[in-house]
Every structure is written in structure tokens, then in C-alpha cells.
């Protein structure tokens, strides 16, 4: 009765990667991240070397979850967009298809208007990709690599 797994396939991951790389260019952003609503990192592009993507993913998902909670209190379905303005860096967060979160980090080289405009196109692309992936994921055999996990495999994980 645990939630079904989310399985990310290579073909769709490549398409996501292409899409976010194009967004970095088009929006003149520093970097772009795609994370799922449960806080799992999916993809990134741009200047990401010094970013702690795992923490960013978890905090973004927490942020979206908290905002979603506020929306419910106001009888809104979701607040799909957030913008946080810093001194040098700004962050634009867009909920995509109520499934994943697009995070765009940018500075003075870009503008909120441009980011907002470009995110719209990428969101449409991502909605389509994730719908396709969800269908694929629902097909039997998604997690079949794990059907043969043994107790020994599990014990080995904790050996050190």
C-alpha cells in the first residue's frame, strides 16, 4: 500500500535535460533545477558546481508543500509560482503540472519578466514529458530489477 514508485527513464531524462539547458540559455539564468514534489532531485543545468542540489531539492519541496498548505487554508488549489528576491541572486519557483518543480536561479543579467516568459514554454514541455513518463512508469516491470534482492544484499549495505 506504499505509493507506487516513480521511475525515471533515460529517454525522458535526456529530454528534460535538453529542455532545462535551453531554459538556462533563453532566460539568461545562472542555473535551473527540476525537482519532484517529494524533494527528489531530477535534473539541473547551468552553473551548478557549487550548489548543494540535494538540500536545494528538499527545501524547495518543503517550500512548495508549505505554500500548498497555505493555499488550502484559503481554499485555493495551489499557488503555482513563487519569487524570492535577494541582493545578488533571485530564485523563481514554478510548480509544473502539479507534479514537479522548476527552480530558476538568476542574477542582474536577467530579469523577472524574461524568466517568467521563458519558464512558461519550458513548463509546457515538462508537463508533456512527465505525463509520458508517468504512463511508462505505471506499466508493469518498472522496478523489476529489485525483485531479486536478497537478505544478503541488504546486509551488505550495512557492513561498514
Amino acid at each position: 500500500m506504499v505509493n507506487p514508485h516513480t521511475v525515471m527513464y533515460e529517454a525522458e531524462l535526456n529530454r528534460i535535460q535538453t529542455s532545462v539547458s535551453a531554459l538556462v540559455q533563453a532566460a539568461n539564468a545562472k542555473c535551473v533545477f527540476v525537482v519532484d514534489k517529494n524533494g527528489q532531485f531530477i535534473a539541473s543545468s547551468g552553473e551548478v558546481e557549487n550548489m548543494d542540489a540535494t538540500s536545494l531539492a528538499s527545501l524547495t519541496a518543503g517550500n512548495i508543500a508549505a505554500t500548498g498548505g497555505m493555499a488550502k487554508l484559503l481554499r485555493e488549489n495551489e499557488f503555482t509560482t513563487q519569487f524570492h528576491e535577494g541582493k545578488n541572486a533571485h530564485i523563481y519557483i514554478q510548480l509544473v503540472g502539479n507534479r514537479v518543480i522548476l527552480v530558476v536561479i538568476f542574477d542582474a543579467k536577467s530579469s523577472l519578466g524574461l524568466v517568467r516568459l521563458r519558464v512558461r514554454k519550458t513548463s509546457d514541455e515538462l508537463v508533456e514529458i512527465f505525463e509520458q513518463m508517468a504512463k511508462k512508469s505505471a506499466e508493469p516491470g518498472g522496478g523489476s530489477a529489485f525483485a531479486e534482492i536478497t537478505d544478503e544484499d541488504i546486509d551488505n549495505l550495512f557492513n561498514d
Partner: peptide, 15 residues
Amino acid sequence: MTFINLMAREINCKI
């Protein structure tokens, strides 16, 4: 919801 990335060959679980 276990998150399985077939490209990076990773399983992510939430406890």
C-alpha cells in the same frame, strides 16, 4: 514513493 533513476542507476527512499 521510491524514486528510481534508471539513467543514473539510483534508488532514492524517504524515511
